[in-house]
């Protein structure tokens, strides 16, 4: 019986483990206890602290911190930055995955490595590079000043830095998924007379929708929460160039702790929503990947 079960389920279920391949109950309990203690100390207590500190001074202080004009403009700017960065990187992710997964060409692995670059360095460097190019002493600085265009220490700089740090998120999910799926279905569509765009819309995108959504969720969470890169290019002008994470920093540095944690609690809620959405999508995405794997090995 156990043998037939393990034939169908690739990961070995706990139930089929015999006494020889598991640990005595007291070892199991100690290990579970240690792991839970570590996670409690490093995950759950810090998360609970955010909400505790936010509500410590009462609900009035909490709500006032959220509806204050500077907080509202920070929310608006965060939504603008994510609203531009996520679609931009989504289009790029689909284009890059189409080129890389559906065609064989020279320099492909170099291209894949280059796409991962923005996540390899420090986010601070992401901010620095745009200051070097668009800042007053930068390459384009004099020209921009002459034409009265502001990029650094203004909204465009924040959007650019956000795009940079979230650059690979969608591409990174789509490339391996589309590579595993192969291009048989697309070739069939083309042979049957569909145009390239029809094939993309009707065949490719429906096949990768969960992977795409997964990438978008991760991309959005990072875009709304980014701090280091945005901090360099923002200039911290209240009500103008402050995103939510930067607003948290300003309030905290002014010792307005309750307000800082109130704003932080919105971001923490966003993180919880992200985790829930991610867990839900992961379930479908797992099936999509599994199907692709079986197809490519068949």
């Amino acid at each position: 019986m156990a043998a037939t079960v393990s034939l169908h389920v690739p990961s070995v279920g706990i139930a089929v483990r015999s006494a020889a391949t598991t640990e005595p109950a007291w070892v199991r309990r100690t290990l579970i206890g240690l792991a839970l203690a570590f996670l409690t100390l490093f995950l759950f207590v810090p998360l609970a602290t955010v909400f505790y500190e936010a509500l410590k001074k009462g609900v009035d202080v909490y709500l006032n911190a959220l509806i204050e004009p500077d907080a509202l403009s920070a929310i608006k700017l965060t939504l603008i930055a994510a609203g531009i960065a996520v679609p931009a990187n989504l289009v790029f992710g689909v284009a890059a995955a189409w080129a890389i997964a559906k065609f064989e060409f020279r320099g492909k692995s170099l291209l894949i490595t280059l796409i991962d670059l923005p996540c390899a360095g420090s986010p601070v460097i992401a901010g620095l590079i745009y200051v070097l190019i668009f800042g007053a002493q930068g390459w384009c600085g004099p020209w921009l000043q002459a034409h009265d265009v502001k990029i650094v220490f203004a909204v465009p700089g924040i959007v650019l830095a956000t795009i940079f740090v979230t650059f690979p998120f969608v591409a990174r999910e789509l490339i391996p998924l589309m590579q595993a799926q192969g291009s048989d279905e697309e070739e069939a569509a083309i042979v049957l007379g569909a145009s390239g765009w029809q094939t993309l819309w009707r065949v490719t995108l429906p096949n990768v929708k969960w992977g795409l959504l997964y990438g978008v969720i991760l991309c959005n969470a990072r875009a709304m929460g980014e701090f280091g890169a945005v901090s360099v290019v923002s200039g911290h002008i209240r009500g103008m160039t402050n995103t939510l994470p930067l607003h948290v920093e300003i309030l905290y540095n002014e010792y307005a702790f309750a307000a800082a944690f109130a704003v932080a609690s919105i971001l923490a809620l966003l993180a919880l929503v992200t985790l829930a959405a991610k867990t839900f999508v992961e379930w479908h995405y797992g099936h999509e990947r599994q199907a692709a794997k079986q197809e490519s090995s068949a």
């Binding site: 998360l47 929460g225 966003l270 985790l275």
Partner: peptide, 9 residues
């Protein structure tokens, strides 16, 4: 959670 929670928070 550390992937999802903004670093400033």
């Amino acid at each position: 959670l550390p992937f999802a929670l903004p670093t400033a928070v």
